[in-house]
Nucleic acid binder design. Structure first.
Length: 414
RNA sequence: GCGGGUGUAGCUCAGUCGGUUAGAGCGCCAGAUUGUGGAUCUGGAGGCCGUGGGUUCGAUCCCCAUCACUCGCCCCA
């Protein structure tokens, strides 16, 4: 193995990418705050138990995708595969449940040992929000509205669509599961091998299968909608009415299910056709039973997470770097003066840089490559008058500016 | 975890029906232009042809393995 390669499924995030990530994170954070969601972060590793309990012992993530290890004191530790479990744990261990409802925004790296593909990495980054302690359907509507506005602000809402479904409450699911399993068993021959295995483990997932045979079977399956309890149906209706009221367009997708066990009621996904097989860009739902499962007080919750790398791939333009002012000494003897001028600009809040070597032509070339907005040229002619030549790199226009007026001139021109 | 494709210069990609010094465009460096960038011209640097093994007189090319990326399944953000 080549030790100088990054670990499979991990990437260095170079400046271009980093700026895209930052735009996504910052846009999301600002809008989240506008909705009352405060940023918080939890450790990137937790006791393995935290994830096992919340994600479900049989979920794929827990059974084969976690980065789990024993640390030096023998504790079972897992690098977080998602963000909700940590926040739920924090709510319990920090006693935050006293002042509900709580609204949190988070961002950071997540880890899953999956087979890498485009849009699927072993270390990837998510932004997410959680609304804890709000049982109302308005909570579901709020988090969706926030996600929608973030996608809109990033300019990618138009390339996604919102899919919506309800997973009902536990009574609904139990009733439906029974008839679904009965139906699927009677059509067992038509099911794929994978789906046959899911029959007793996670039959709802079969609804989501892409296998042709499965789809034919599923097309004739009883509909979950017919087995919703009155309460569950009313809840879903309120969510839909809320979305309609805000003018948020969605598509009901009865096949939309969740891989993680903690979800109930509302499930939603913003999907796109521009990323190949990894079409989900932002996904979430309601998880009323989660906190209680973890040993905390019964606390309803709803939230979502979005993959930063996937969002970045949908951004249609590069995020531009800051355009600096580049200071250019004409001749080595003026370098010290140039550096003083550069530093003065920086202290005044102006992005400034100085080429480190070469003649004027070479430094100009470099300034151009750095995307300079202005060049400040310092040579014997100018310095004799305590001035500099200020060149607008876009238009090529030049003027002489006294050194002590340079900061003013540059701030007014920006 | 399963199946397919790809891997040649910093980037995008040619190429060798197995044969001696492996090419192009872009980019990079230098010069034309010792106080002016983006254009043009000239020159230059840069390749264990992903890695390991096998077949062969000879492998970048064929075979096997492996690693990485990629497409689909699975799963999911």
């Amino acid at each position: 193995m080549d030790q100088l390669q990054p670990v499979r499924g991990t990437h260095d995030i170079l400046p271009d990418q980093s700026r895209a990530h930052r735009r996504i994170r910052e846009t999301a954070r600002e809008l989240a705050e506008r909705y009352g969601y405060a940023e918080m972060s939890t450790p990137i590793f937790e006791f393995t138990e935290v994830f096992k309990r919340t994600l479900g012992e049989t979920s794929d993530i827990v059974t084969k995708e976690m980065y789990t290890f024993a640390d030096r004191s023998g504790d079972q530790i897992t690098l977080r595969p998602e963000g909700t479990a940590g926040i739920a744990r924090a709510l319990i261990s920090g006693g935050l449940g006293q002042s509900l409802p709580l609204k949190f925004f988070y961002s950071g790296p997540m880890f899953r040992h999956e087979r890498p593909q485009k849009g699927r990495l072993r270390q990837f980054h998510q932004i997410g929000v959680e609304l804890l302690g709000a049982a109302s359907a308005m909570g579901d509507v709020e988090v969706i509205a926030l996600g929608d506005q973030i996608l809109e602000a990033l300019g990618i809402r138009g390339r996604t669509r919102l899919e919506l479904n309800t997973l009902g409450d536990s009574a609904s699911r139990a009733a439906y599961r029974e008839v679904l399993v009965a139906y699927l068993i009677s059509h067992r021959d038509g099911l794929s091998e994978d789906s046959a295995k899911r029959l007793d483990r996670n039959p709802l997932r079969i609804l989501d299968s892409k296998d042709k045979g499965d789809r034919e079977v599923v097309d004739g399956a009883p509909l979950f909608g017919d087995y919703l309890t009155d309460d569950a149906r009313a809840f879903f209706d309120r969510v839909r009415a809320g979305l309609d009221d805000l003018g948020l367009a969605y598509l009901i997708n009865p096949r939309l299910v969740r891989g993680l066990d903690y979800y109930c009621h509302t499930a939603f996904e913003y999907t796109t056709e521009h990323l190949g097989a990894q079409g989900t860009v932002l996904a979430g739902g309601r998880y009323d039973g989660l906190i209680e499962t973890m040993g905390g007080p019964p606390t309803p919750g709803v939230g979502w997470a979005a993959g930063i790398e996937r969002l970045a791939m949908l951004l249609d333009e590069q995020v531009p770097a800051v355009k600096p002012v580049v200071v250019i000494p004409v001749g080595d003897e003026f370098e010290a003066e140039a550096f003083r001028v550069t530093q003065r600009l920086r202290l005044a809040g102006i992005a400034a840089d100085i080429g480190f070597s070469g003649n004027l032509s070479r430094r100009m070339k470099r300034a151009n490559r750095m995307g300079a907005a202005y060049a400040v040229i310092l040579g014997s002619d100018e310095l004799a008058r305590d001035a500099a030549t200020l060149r607008d790199m876009e238009t090529g226009a030049q003027e002489e500016v006294a050194l002590d007026k340079l900061v003013d001139r540059l701030t007014q021109r920006r």
